[in-house]
C-alpha cells in the first residue's frame, strides 16, 4: 500500500541516492492535489478568457505588449525555474537526512521568491510611471490582474516554504515524514507552472 510506506521506502524520486525505479506513489498529501487541480482549472479559465479577448482586438494586444520588458520576463522565468530546482534539491537533501543542507536550499527558494516579487513590483512601478494602469485597456487589465493574482500565490508559496524551513531546522521533518513538506513544494511548483503560461501569453505571444 502506498499510504503505508515511508518516504525512504518509496524512494524519493529526486534525491541523489534515489533508486533507479522508484515506487509508484503520489507525492505530498493526496487531498492537496484537489486544490492544485482547482487552481489549474481556474487559471486555465483565465488563460482562455485572455485568448478570446486577444482574438477580438489583436492589434491592441500586440501594441500594448510592446510596453512590457521581455528581458525582465525571461529573468523572472529563470528565477522561478532555479527556485523549483532548489526545492527539489531541498527535498532530496531531506530524504538523505541532510536537514542543514535542505534548509540552505529552502533559503535559496525563499530568495528566489523575494527576487521575483521585487522585479514584479519594479515592473508595476515602471508601468504606472508611464501612465499604464489596469484601466488603460483590456490588455493591461489582464496584465495587472493575472500577474497580481499570480504574485499572491507566489507570496503564499514563499511564506509556506519559510515556515517549513523553520520546521526543517527544528527537526520536525525527516525522510519518513515528508508529505506536508512535499505539498508545500508542489504549491511552489504550481506557481512556476502558471508562470510558464503567463509569460508566454503576456510577454512572448506576438
Amino acid at each position: 500500500m502506498v499510504g503505508q510506506a515511508t518516504d525512504r521506502d518509496r524512494g524519493g524520486a529526486l534525491g541523489k541516492n534515489a533508486p533507479c525505479h522508484p515506487a509508484v506513489r503520489v507525492p505530498g498529501v493526496r487531498d492537496f492535489w484537489i486544490l492544485i487541480a482547482a487552481e489549474c482549472s481556474l487559471f486555465s479559465f483565465f488563460f482562455i478568457t485572455y485568448m478570446i479577448g486577444r482574438g477580438g482586438d489583436v492589434d491592441l494586444y500586440r501594441t500594448s505588449q510592446q510596453a512590457l520588458s521581455r528581458d525582465l520576463g525571461v529573468f523572472n522565468t529563470c528565477v522561478l525555474i532555479i527556485g523549483s530546482w532548489s526545492v527539489m534539491q531541498a527535498l532530496g537533501s531531506l530524504r538523505r537526512e541532510h536537514a542543514r543542507q535542505a534548509s540552505h536550499y529552502l533559503a535559496g527558494v525563499i530568495g528566489c521568491g523575494v527576487i521575483f516579487a521585487g522585479v514584479k513590483v519594479f515592473e508595476y512601478a515602471d508601468k504606472i510611471s508611464h501612465g499604464l494602469f489596469p484601466t488603460t485597456n483590456d490588455f493591461f487589465t489582464f496584465y495587472f490582474v493575472l500577474t497580481m493574482v499570480h504574485m499572491v500565490h507566489l507570496v503564499i508559496a514563499t511564506v509556506v516554504l519559510a515556515v517549513m524551513r523553520r520546521g526543517v531546522m527544528a527537526g520536525h521533518y525527516h525522510s519518513g515524514q515528508m508529505d506536508v513538506l512535499e505539498s508545500g513544494a508542489i504549491y511552489w511548483h504550481l506557481v512556476d507552472l502558471l508562470w510558464m503560461f503567463l509569460f508566454a501569453l503576456l510577454y512572448l505571444l506576438q
Partner: peptide, 8 residues
C-alpha cells in the same frame, strides 16, 4: 518538479 512521473 511535482514528481508526477512516478505517480499512478
Amino acid at each position: 518538479f511535482m514528481e508526477l512521473r512516478h505517480a499512478p
